[in-house]
Design a protein around this nucleic acid. Sequence first.
DNA 1: CGCTAACCGGACAGGATCGTCCGGTTAGCT
DNA 2: AGCTAACCGGACGATCCTGTCCGGTTAGCG
Lengths: 193, 193
Amino acid sequence: MPATVRATNRGPAAAADNRRALLDSARRLFAERGYRVPLNAIARDAGVGQGSLYRHFPTRLDLAFAIFEDNYAELERIAEEDTGPGAFLRLWRHLIELTLGSTAFVELAVEARRELADPSYGDRLLRILEGPLARAQAAAEVDAALTVEDLALAHRMIYGVIVTQPDAISARSAASRALRLIGRGLSWQEEPT
Amino acid sequence: MPATVRATNRGPAAAADNRRALLDSARRLFAERGYRVPLNAIARDAGVGQGSLYRHFPTRLDLAFAIFEDNYAELERIAEEDTGPGAFLRLWRHLIELTLGSTAFVELAVEARRELADPSYGDRLLRILEGPLARAQAAAEVDAALTVEDLALAHRMIYGVIVTQPDAISARSAASRALRLIGRGLSWQEEPT
DNA sequence: CGCTAACCGGACAGGATCGTCCGGTTAGCT
DNA sequence: AGCTAACCGGACGATCCTGTCCGGTTAGCG
């Protein structure tokens, strides 16, 4: 039996384990039931008391930040390390994949802006996309007129498709169709505003 | 004083007035606070008791159906009556305008499918768009490859943009940008799946 | 072995929402 | 006027969620 497995989750040494169990359960339940999943459901799923949940993460936002920090860190890592041909498209695909995995990723950003009245959390995605987009444009891989704001908008469009889809399986193909729609354009006459 | 204004909302003759007041309040609160607005808030706003609300509309779905029936009826009327040049685009714009007016319009369709396990409510939009799209394609106004499913997908994409926007004013310009993005395409290489 | 700091569980109070129930009100008819 | 069917209001019980509080548990140390 590995040393990390304990017979009990009590005592000073159990704090780290409980924290990790809470994060694991929260990640799964956010994905399965959305950002608004009850916090006590998370505590129950993690096998810890309500007290422990609120001690480790005083608010829903604290918990969600801790979970989706992983998403951002991974995107930042990819944006930094992958600079070869097609790197932008790989980064973009990864972002879509994360969104398919949990729409709470987007809902958190919306909630953070509403709750904290601070746009910095949403801006983080823009900063991640900036470098790779510029490099892809320099390599003529994507339209030079494209901006990171366009990408963020496209991301929210994909979110809309996923969140209105009844199940995760069909969400993937719907998102795929939506990406093609964005990529090719509907080819109709929409005059500029 | 018009005959329709009553000093009281009691008695047998008041039922119709109360029903209308409930619909008016619900329409406004659904638009302002989203599909999940508390039902008792609607009753309070309409100036009627909880009992009257539940008597007229046993479930949230009943109330929402009654409200958004107007949206569908209006779209159907436009689709039927307006057959001149550019008719399709006018219909499409009207759909976007309704969605800007109340995202609950979309959320209801999602909820109805989840709750009733019946896709007919969502399909109603497809049926409305069918004729005008075919006519626009016959007139070479829009790409012949476009399907009503594409349009429904695009509609949900616009919904995603609106619902993640912090306020109604900025939602309009964001939706406008999104529409241009869809119309022109991002012009990058996304291979078909 | 006993003490203590750190930590845990779950009961609990507070607050929100749902849906029901029944005493009270009204219009119209006799 | 009196009666009755139709309708209304809001109190109320049930349920759910949040966030706190405190008696109980554990690891490590002298």
